[in-house]
Design a protein around this nucleic acid. Structure first.
Length: 275
DNA sequence: CACTTGACCTGTCCGC
DNA sequence: TGCGGACAGGTCAAGT
């Protein structure tokens, strides 16, 4: 489900709402996606205080007192919902964090791809970030036109869309925003990375920065089940140009939007103006 | 090594 | 109405 704007939206809400609170207890209804037994997981978190909430790529990091961090990935269908004490967990609620305020934090995930893991904060780089190949953050100073150009060259035989999805060049772009950024940059998703011309790379670079920034502003994109911590939908859906618009006319050239399969993923694009 | 495909899991939608 | 298959916002491991 969530790509960078959705995860960042959730991070900002959690930062406002749960920092400073204490985890009184945790209820574990499904232990298949945590890195301890239910018992140890509960014991680990009991009475920990929430110090800060950060994000790396699509991972949420809830930093706790005593040097521990909760590492959360929502994958396709995970949700973090802040609810009052009246709300009951449903069948897909796997974890409930009972906080010192009047809040409880529900981790729900229909498809069970997501996870919630505990690590020592000092071991994050080594155990969480190091093994995976994380590209640069799109909003950081490291994400430059030169960086993107070099990275496309290093993976020149990959089609551009699967390369964006791989997170190797820049993190946070998933299936929706890869289609949207390529539309804005007027690049056909199946073009090989090594064949993009400098002005096309420049357009792609700008599109990534602008679209992600705009989407964060609007609270992300809800196509189907993405929700923020209050259960609200994201506002970027109304700005989508190709994703989910199969057969509708292109907002730039009126040509019907086409949907194909590329790298195993549904891919929306306009044959009229994406070359 | 670079790149592609299938698996993970549950729900929904579409065609027959 | 039922049933099978394809597909869904993300990563990984395994395959070529």
């Amino acid at each position: 489900m969530p790509e960078l704007p959705e995860v960042e939206t959730i991070r900002r809400q959690l930062e406002k709402q749960i920092v400073g609170q204490r985890i009184n207890s945790v209820d574990v209804f499904f232990s298949g996606r945590i890195n301890f037994s239910a018992k140890k997981f509960r014991e680990h978190l009991r009475d920990k205080k929430i110090i800060s909430v950060s994000r790396r790529a699509k991972l949420l990091l809830i930093n706790l007192s005593d040097g521990f961090t909760l590492v959360i990935h929502l994958k396709m269908s995970g949700q973090l919902l802040l609810v009052g004490s009246d709300r009951l967990p449903d069948k897909h609620t796997h974890l409930v964090f009972n906080l010192s305020g009047d809040y409880r934090l529900f981790f729900t995930d229909v498809r069970k791809f997501g996870f919630v893991r505990i690590f020592k904060t000092s071991e994050l780089e080594q155990k969480v970030f190091h093994p995976a190949q994380f590209g640069v953050e799109p909003q950081s100073a490291d994400f430059t036109l030169n960086h993107l150009t070099d990275c496309l060259l290093r993976h020149s035989r990959s089609a551009i869309k699967p390369l964006l999805l791989s997170q190797k060049c820049v993190v946070g772009v998933g299936n929706i925003y890869s289609d949207e950024t390529l539309w804005r940059a007027r690049i056909r998703p199946s073009r090989l990375a090594g064949q993009l011309k400098p002005d096309e790379i420049k357009r792609l670079y700008s599109a990534i920065k602008q679209i992600l920034t705009k989407s964060i502003e609007l609270g992300g994109t809800s196509v189907d089940q993405y929700r923020d911590t209050t259960g609200a939908r994201g506002g970027y859906a109304r700005l989508l140009k190709v994703y989910g618009r199969t057969g509708l006319s292109c907002r730039r050239c009126q040509h019907p939007i086409k949907k194909i399969r590329l790298g195993g993923r549904g891919t929306h694009w306009c044959p009229g103006c994406q070359r």
